[in-house]
Protein backbone atom coordinates (compact mmCIF):
# COMPACT_ATOMS: atom_id res chain seq x y z
CA UNK A 1 0.00 0.00 0.00
CA UNK A 2 1.14 3.50 -0.75
CA UNK A 3 2.01 5.96 1.97
CA UNK A 4 0.42 9.06 0.54
CA UNK A 5 -1.98 9.64 -2.30
CA UNK A 6 -2.77 12.99 -3.88
CA UNK A 7 -5.99 12.46 -5.84
CA UNK A 8 -7.12 14.82 -8.60
CA UNK A 9 -6.04 17.86 -6.66
CA UNK A 10 -6.72 21.31 -8.07
CA UNK A 11 -5.82 24.57 -6.35
CA UNK A 12 -6.90 28.05 -7.34
CA UNK A 13 -5.58 31.33 -5.96
CA UNK A 14 -8.42 33.62 -6.98
CA UNK A 15 -8.54 33.07 -10.74
CA UNK A 16 -5.06 31.67 -11.01
CA UNK A 17 -4.90 27.90 -11.30
CA UNK A 18 -1.76 26.87 -9.43
CA UNK A 19 -2.35 23.11 -9.60
CA UNK A 20 -4.46 21.38 -12.21
CA UNK A 21 -5.83 17.92 -11.47
CA UNK A 22 -2.63 16.51 -10.02
CA UNK A 23 -2.40 12.80 -9.17
CA UNK A 24 0.58 11.55 -7.23
CA UNK A 25 1.16 8.36 -5.33
CA UNK A 26 4.04 8.04 -2.93
CA UNK A 27 5.28 4.75 -1.51
CA UNK A 28 7.23 4.08 1.64
CA UNK A 29 11.01 4.45 1.42
CA UNK A 30 10.84 6.72 -1.61
CA UNK A 31 12.93 9.85 -1.86
CA UNK A 32 11.03 12.02 -4.28
CA UNK A 33 12.23 15.31 -5.72
CA UNK A 34 9.75 17.74 -7.17
CA UNK A 35 11.25 20.00 -9.81
CA UNK A 36 9.88 22.54 -12.23
CA UNK A 37 10.31 26.18 -13.23
CA UNK A 38 9.23 28.99 -10.92
CA UNK A 39 5.46 29.16 -10.57
CA UNK A 40 5.02 25.53 -11.60
CA UNK A 41 3.21 24.78 -8.33
CA UNK A 42 5.92 22.98 -6.35
CA UNK A 43 5.53 24.89 -3.11
CA UNK A 44 1.75 24.84 -3.48
CA UNK A 45 1.81 21.05 -3.74
CA UNK A 46 4.03 20.81 -0.68
CA UNK A 47 1.78 23.13 1.30
CA UNK A 48 -1.29 21.13 0.31
CA UNK A 49 0.35 17.98 1.58
CA UNK A 50 1.48 19.59 4.84
CA UNK A 51 -1.93 21.19 5.37
CA UNK A 52 -0.93 24.86 5.25
CA UNK A 53 -3.26 25.12 2.24
CA UNK A 54 -6.53 23.38 1.46
CA UNK A 55 -7.18 22.18 -2.10
CA UNK A 56 -9.99 23.72 -4.14
CA UNK A 57 -10.87 20.23 -5.39
CA UNK A 58 -9.51 16.76 -4.79
CA UNK A 59 -8.38 14.62 -1.89
CA UNK A 60 -5.24 13.82 0.02
CA UNK A 61 -5.02 10.35 1.57
CA UNK A 62 -2.45 9.20 4.11
CA UNK A 63 -2.30 5.44 4.68
CA UNK A 64 -5.90 5.07 3.53
CA UNK A 65 -7.12 7.94 5.72
CA UNK A 66 -8.60 11.08 4.19
CA UNK A 67 -6.61 13.98 5.62
CA UNK A 68 -7.77 16.67 3.18
CA UNK A 69 -9.43 18.79 5.83
CA UNK A 70 -6.95 18.30 8.65
CA UNK A 71 -4.85 21.12 10.08
CA UNK A 72 -1.04 21.04 9.91
CA UNK A 73 -0.81 20.05 13.56
CA UNK A 74 -3.18 17.11 13.09
CA UNK A 75 -1.22 15.94 10.05
CA UNK A 76 1.96 16.34 12.00
CA UNK A 77 0.63 13.91 14.61
CA UNK A 78 -0.12 11.45 11.82
CA UNK A 79 3.43 11.71 10.57
CA UNK A 80 3.71 14.40 7.87
CA UNK A 81 6.21 17.10 8.75
CA UNK A 82 7.49 19.99 6.72
CA UNK A 83 10.60 22.08 7.00
CA UNK A 84 10.37 25.60 5.68
CA UNK A 85 12.03 27.20 2.69
CA UNK A 86 12.86 30.22 4.78
CA UNK A 87 14.19 28.60 7.94
CA UNK A 88 11.57 28.71 10.66
CA UNK A 89 12.60 28.48 14.29
CA UNK A 90 11.96 30.05 17.71
CA UNK A 91 14.35 33.02 17.65
CA UNK A 92 14.59 33.71 21.39
CA UNK A 93 14.87 30.10 22.52
CA UNK A 94 18.20 28.30 22.62
CA UNK A 95 19.09 25.79 19.95
CA UNK A 96 18.55 23.04 22.50
CA UNK A 97 15.14 24.34 23.56
CA UNK A 98 14.12 24.67 19.92
CA UNK A 99 14.62 20.97 19.57
CA UNK A 100 12.96 20.20 22.86
CA UNK A 101 9.77 21.90 21.73
CA UNK A 102 9.62 19.48 18.80
CA UNK A 103 10.40 16.43 20.93
CA UNK A 104 7.92 17.36 23.66
CA UNK A 105 5.26 17.70 21.01
CA UNK A 106 6.09 14.47 19.23
CA UNK A 107 6.17 12.48 22.45
CA UNK A 108 2.76 13.88 23.40
CA UNK A 109 4.18 15.58 26.48
CA UNK A 110 3.17 19.17 25.78
CA UNK A 111 0.20 18.98 28.13
CA UNK A 112 2.46 18.18 31.04
CA UNK A 113 1.78 21.23 33.21
CA UNK A 114 3.75 20.40 36.30
CA UNK A 115 6.95 18.68 35.24
CA UNK A 116 10.05 20.72 34.53
CA UNK A 117 11.08 20.12 30.93
CA UNK A 118 14.69 20.69 31.78
CA UNK A 119 14.67 17.70 34.11
CA UNK A 120 13.10 15.33 31.64
CA UNK A 121 15.96 12.92 30.95
CA UNK A 122 14.29 11.37 27.94
CA UNK A 123 13.88 14.76 26.27
CA UNK A 124 17.40 15.81 27.26
CA UNK A 125 18.98 12.69 25.77
CA UNK A 126 17.00 12.75 22.57
CA UNK A 127 17.52 16.44 21.93
CA UNK A 128 21.23 16.28 22.58
CA UNK A 129 21.62 13.28 20.31
CA UNK A 130 19.70 14.98 17.54
CA UNK A 131 21.90 18.07 17.85
CA UNK A 132 24.99 15.88 17.60
CA UNK A 133 23.69 14.25 14.44
CA UNK A 134 23.25 17.68 12.88
CA UNK A 135 26.52 19.03 14.22
CA UNK A 136 24.77 21.68 16.27
CA UNK A 137 25.70 20.38 19.71
CA UNK A 138 28.51 22.89 20.22
CA UNK A 139 26.06 25.74 19.77
CA UNK A 140 23.26 24.24 21.84
CA UNK A 141 23.10 27.22 24.18
CA UNK A 142 23.07 29.87 21.47
CA UNK A 143 19.80 31.65 20.92
CA UNK A 144 18.46 30.43 17.60
CA UNK A 145 18.45 33.95 16.20
CA UNK A 146 22.22 34.21 16.76
CA UNK A 147 23.08 31.12 14.70
CA UNK A 148 24.66 31.50 11.23
CA UNK A 149 22.27 31.06 8.33
CA UNK A 150 23.27 27.53 7.42
CA UNK A 151 22.82 26.41 11.03
CA UNK A 152 19.36 27.96 11.15
CA UNK A 153 18.44 25.80 8.18
CA UNK A 154 19.84 22.74 9.90
CA UNK A 155 17.98 23.61 13.08
CA UNK A 156 14.73 23.86 11.17
CA UNK A 157 15.33 20.48 9.53
CA UNK A 158 16.51 18.98 12.82
CA UNK A 159 13.34 19.98 14.62
CA UNK A 160 11.30 18.47 11.80
CA UNK A 161 13.33 15.25 12.00
CA UNK A 162 12.95 15.14 15.76
CA UNK A 163 9.26 14.44 15.23
CA UNK A 164 10.21 11.10 13.61
CA UNK A 165 7.85 11.63 10.69
CA UNK A 166 6.68 8.93 8.31
CA UNK A 167 7.07 11.44 5.53
CA UNK A 168 9.25 14.52 5.60
CA UNK A 169 8.76 17.46 3.28
CA UNK A 170 11.84 19.58 2.62
CA UNK A 171 11.18 22.87 0.85
CA UNK A 172 14.45 24.03 -0.75
CA UNK A 173 16.64 23.08 2.21
CA UNK A 174 19.70 24.57 0.53
CA UNK A 175 18.29 27.89 -0.70
CA UNK A 176 20.28 30.90 0.40
CA UNK A 177 23.38 28.82 1.13
CA UNK A 178 26.64 29.11 -0.83
CA UNK A 179 27.41 26.39 -3.38
CA UNK A 180 30.25 25.06 -1.30
CA UNK A 181 28.12 24.78 1.81
CA UNK A 182 25.24 23.20 -0.13
CA UNK A 183 26.95 19.85 -0.46
CA UNK A 184 27.84 19.75 3.22
CA UNK A 185 24.32 20.68 4.19
CA UNK A 186 22.75 18.02 2.00
CA UNK A 187 25.30 15.48 3.22
CA UNK A 188 24.39 16.26 6.83
CA UNK A 189 20.67 16.04 6.10
CA UNK A 190 21.02 12.73 4.29
CA UNK A 191 23.14 11.12 6.98
CA UNK A 192 20.67 12.40 9.59
CA UNK A 193 17.82 10.80 7.65
CA UNK A 194 19.62 7.47 7.85
CA UNK A 195 20.63 7.93 11.47
CA UNK A 196 17.13 8.81 12.55
CA UNK A 197 15.52 6.11 10.41
CA UNK A 198 13.33 8.43 8.37
CA UNK A 199 12.89 6.79 5.00
CA UNK A 200 10.27 8.72 3.01
CA UNK A 201 11.11 12.15 1.72
CA UNK A 202 9.71 14.76 -0.62
CA UNK A 203 12.25 17.36 -1.65
CA UNK A 204 11.70 20.59 -3.56
CA UNK A 205 15.05 21.74 -4.90
CA UNK A 206 16.52 23.87 -7.68
CA UNK A 207 20.00 22.40 -7.67
CA UNK A 208 19.84 19.57 -10.23
CA UNK A 209 23.00 17.90 -8.97
CA UNK A 210 21.38 17.49 -5.60
CA UNK A 211 18.13 16.33 -7.17
CA UNK A 212 19.76 13.65 -9.31
CA UNK A 213 22.18 12.53 -6.60
CA UNK A 214 19.78 12.13 -3.74
CA UNK A 215 16.41 11.10 -5.18
CA UNK A 216 14.97 7.74 -6.04
CA UNK A 217 12.23 9.33 -8.13
CA UNK A 218 11.73 12.72 -9.77
CA UNK A 219 8.40 14.45 -10.42
CA UNK A 220 8.40 17.34 -12.90
CA UNK A 221 5.70 20.00 -12.56
CA UNK A 222 4.92 22.48 -15.27
CA UNK A 223 2.03 24.98 -15.28
CA UNK A 224 0.35 23.12 -12.45
CA UNK A 225 0.46 19.73 -14.18
CA UNK A 226 2.74 16.72 -13.90
CA UNK A 227 4.97 16.64 -16.95
CA UNK A 228 7.04 13.63 -16.02
CA UNK A 229 7.28 11.21 -13.10
CA UNK A 230 10.04 8.70 -13.26
CA UNK A 231 13.55 7.68 -12.20
CA UNK A 232 16.28 10.34 -12.18
CA UNK A 233 17.97 8.77 -15.18
CA UNK A 234 14.84 8.79 -17.33
CA UNK A 235 13.89 12.32 -16.33
CA UNK A 236 17.40 13.48 -17.15
CA UNK A 237 17.00 11.99 -20.63
CA UNK A 238 13.57 13.53 -21.24
CA UNK A 239 13.99 16.35 -23.78
CA UNK A 240 10.69 17.98 -22.99
CA UNK A 241 11.74 18.31 -19.35
CA UNK A 242 15.04 19.81 -20.40
CA UNK A 243 13.33 22.39 -22.56
CA UNK A 244 10.91 23.38 -19.79
CA UNK A 245 13.56 23.47 -17.11
CA UNK A 246 16.45 25.03 -18.96
CA UNK A 247 14.72 26.57 -21.93
CA UNK A 248 17.04 24.72 -24.33
Amino acid sequence: MGLLEVLEVTKYYGDFKALDNVDLKINRDERISIIGPNGAGKTTLLNLISGLLKPTRGKIILEGKNITNMSPSERCKLGIVKSFQIPSYFPNLTTLDNLKVALISSLGKSKNFLKSYQQDEEINNLSERALEVFGLYERRNFLAKDLPHGDKKLLDVASAFALRPKLILLDEPTSGVSIKEKRDLMGTIMSALKEMEISSLILVEHDMDIVFNYSSRVVVLHNGKILDDSSPELVKANKEVASVMFGS
Binding site: S50, S71, P72, S73, C76, K77, V81, K82, F84, S88, Y89, F90, P91, N92, L93, D97, K100, V101, A102, I104, S105, S106, K109, S110, K111, N112, F113, L114, K115, S116, Y117, Q118, D120, I123, S159, A160, L163
Partner: peptide, 29 residues
Protein backbone atom coordinates in the same frame (compact mmCIF):
# COMPACT_ATOMS: atom_id res chain seq x y z
CA UNK B 1 6.80 29.11 38.21
CA UNK B 2 6.40 25.36 37.89
CA UNK B 3 3.87 25.80 35.09
CA UNK B 4 6.03 28.15 33.02
CA UNK B 5 9.05 25.86 33.45
CA UNK B 6 7.09 22.80 32.41
CA UNK B 7 6.76 21.08 29.07
CA UNK B 8 3.56 23.06 28.69
CA UNK B 9 5.33 26.32 29.52
CA UNK B 10 8.00 25.74 26.90
CA UNK B 11 5.30 24.97 24.35
CA UNK B 12 3.61 28.29 25.18
CA UNK B 13 6.86 30.15 24.63
CA UNK B 14 7.23 28.38 21.31
CA UNK B 15 3.76 29.59 20.29
CA UNK B 16 4.69 33.12 21.26
CA UNK B 17 7.97 33.00 19.36
CA UNK B 18 6.67 31.48 16.13
CA UNK B 19 3.15 30.13 16.04
CA UNK B 20 3.39 28.82 12.49
CA UNK B 21 6.40 26.70 13.38
CA UNK B 22 4.77 25.55 16.62
CA UNK B 23 1.77 24.39 14.66
CA UNK B 24 3.98 22.62 12.15
CA UNK B 25 5.54 20.77 15.08
CA UNK B 26 2.14 19.44 16.09
CA UNK B 27 1.17 21.87 18.84
CA UNK B 28 -2.52 22.71 18.76
CA UNK B 29 -1.97 26.43 19.09
Amino acid sequence: YIIVSSHFGLSLKAIKENSEKAEALGINI
